[in-house]
């Protein structure tokens, strides 16, 4: 009987220990998926400042990558999603703006 109680206490302790480790891991920093999403975002959106120097094909490529990223926003947690959703919109809109501006220039 004593052994059963000791084993039960041990099992419960292990359960709570693993729970707290999981919670700690979740609370400390970003998951692998989040990190990879953000890295890709940084890659796609680092050229907004130079968007007027990009060709129309390059701009279309950046816009389509941004749209791809938008479809995968679900991999981020709520706070990150809120921040990066706005950042991604600004980035995509800037490339679209540059593409439209180029189109307008060509039509003149």
């Amino acid at each position: 009987m004593k052994k059963i109680i000791t084993d039960a206490i041990f099992a419960v302790s292990i359960f709570f220990l693993s729970l707290s480790v999981t919670a700690y891991a979740a609370g400390s920093g970003l998951s692998e998926n989040e990190r990879s999403w953000i890295d890709e975002f940084n890659q796609v959106c680092s050229e907004t400042g130079a968007s007027m120097t990009l060709s129309e094909d390059q701009l279309k490529d950046r816009i389509s990558s941004a749209e791809g990223l938008k479809g995968r926003l679900g991999t981020l947690d709520d706070s990150a999603k809120k921040v990066y959703s706005r950042r991604l919109d600004m980035c995509r809109n800037m490339y679209t703006f540059a593409l439209e501006a180029k189109g307008k220039k060509t039509n003149k």
Partner: peptide
């Protein structure tokens, strides 16, 4: 303006085509 704000802060949200 670019030194302070970059491009995407103004375009296209505030100044569109």
């Amino acid at each position: 303006h670019m030194d302070l704000s970059g491009c995407e802060l103004c375009h296209p949200e505030i100044f569109s085509i």
